[in-house]
């Protein structure tokens, strides 16, 4: 509860920002975000580059089903972006394109100004270690314990020593409240516990960006809250860039620096959470939020 209060306070600060009238929604959100992070407007307008830059992204399945149509999106360092939208709006596909689990049909994705589309497999693996992913169905490795799940990427990919990886894994598992479950195998854990291990696994790699693909959709309602709490804590730490695809409106409102609404493979609307939630500009957004709330 204290957490929520904090966040509400955080939002009040958003409202104090003067948004220049000509500025588009994304820039406005960005500005508010910069303000929150106590960064100067100057830094914004000089423009350090976005961590993730999606340009004219198109994705077609089997040559006929168009899932993404010319999606453009920038995500800045330390920003928490929540992507909302009805099922089939392409939000998950967009997220999966960012770490190339789906190959874009057309367009460009740049991570810290490095083009990642159209790269050979070896380089793709190298890029992916910078992008942590949390899946709807957890996808923990069932033959490994919670601890080993969090260690394996560090030892195999980052080539850390066993001791180092172990210490980091314990630290991350304790951070998600599972210090007492490190030797459990995934099937022995509840869904919520599994998802928290999955978050620890992704965070332990210290990626540039954390991608969440509907992380609470497969959970029983009573287990959703503690996963969201873990995500909130990550968001509040401030140094993690997160792109979260979710249906959790409360989470979006409380935690997001920016909300992106997608429908039919297009970004329909984006902006500060309170703007999008309270004064949606697009009729479809309003309809969707209305039906949810």
């Amino acid at each position: 509860m204290a957490l929520l209060k904090n966040k509400q306070h955080h939002h009040h600060r958003h409202h104090k920002v003067d948004v220049p009238p000509a500025m588009d929604a994304e820039a406005a959100a960005k500005l508010a975000f910069m303000h929150d992070k106590k960064l100067s407007k100057h830094a914004f307008f000089e423009g350090e580059h976005p961590v993730v830059r999606i340009e004219h992204l198109n994705k077609t399945f089997d040559g006929e089903t168009i899932v993404l149509r010319d999606v453009n999106l920038n995500v800045w360092n330390g920003e928490i972006v929540v992507v909302l939208g009805p099922s089939g709006s392409g939000k998950s596909t967009m997220l999966r394109c960012i770490n190339l689990l789906e190959t874009p049909t057309a367009g460009h994705i740049l991570i810290e100004d490095d083009e990642i589309t159209g790269k050979p497999a070896k380089e793709v693996n190298f890029i992916r270690r910078e992008l942590g992913m949390v899946f709807q169905s957890f996808n923990l490795f069932p033959h490994l314990t919670a601890l080993e799940n969090v260690m394996i990427g560090q030892t195999k990919v980052l080539k850390k020593s066993k001791e180092e990886a172990r210490a980091e894994a314990i630290k991350q598992l304790e951070a998600v409240g599972l210090g007492d479950r490190i030797d459990y195998k995934p099937p022995q854990l509840s869904g919520g516990q599994q998802q928290r291990v999955a978050i620890a696994r992704a965070v332990a790699m210290h990626p540039k960006v954390l991608l969440f693909d509907e992380p609470t959709s497969a959970l029983d309602p009573e287990l959703v809250r503690d996963v969201l709490n873990v995500m909130k804590e990550l968001a509040l730490h401030g140094d993690m860039t997160m792109i979260v695809v979710t249906h959790e409106m409360g989470f979006a409102r409380d935690v997001a620096d920016r909300v992106v609404f997608m429908e039919g493979g297009v970004v329909v609307e984006q902006g500060l959470p309170e703007d999008v939630f309270d004064h949606p500009q697009n009729e479809r957004t309003a309809q969707f939020l209305g039906s949810i709330e």
């Binding site: 770490n99 270690r129 996808n139 394996i152 195999k156 696994r201």
Partner: peptide, 21 residues
């Protein structure tokens, strides 16, 4: 398929994925 995706998203190569996952 999720096992491959999880291993890939950690940055594991094909052989790492095959032999450890």
């Amino acid at each position: 398929q999720g096992q491959y995706e999880a291993a890939s998203s950690l940055g594991m190569s094909y052989f790492q994925t095959m032999f450890s996952i």
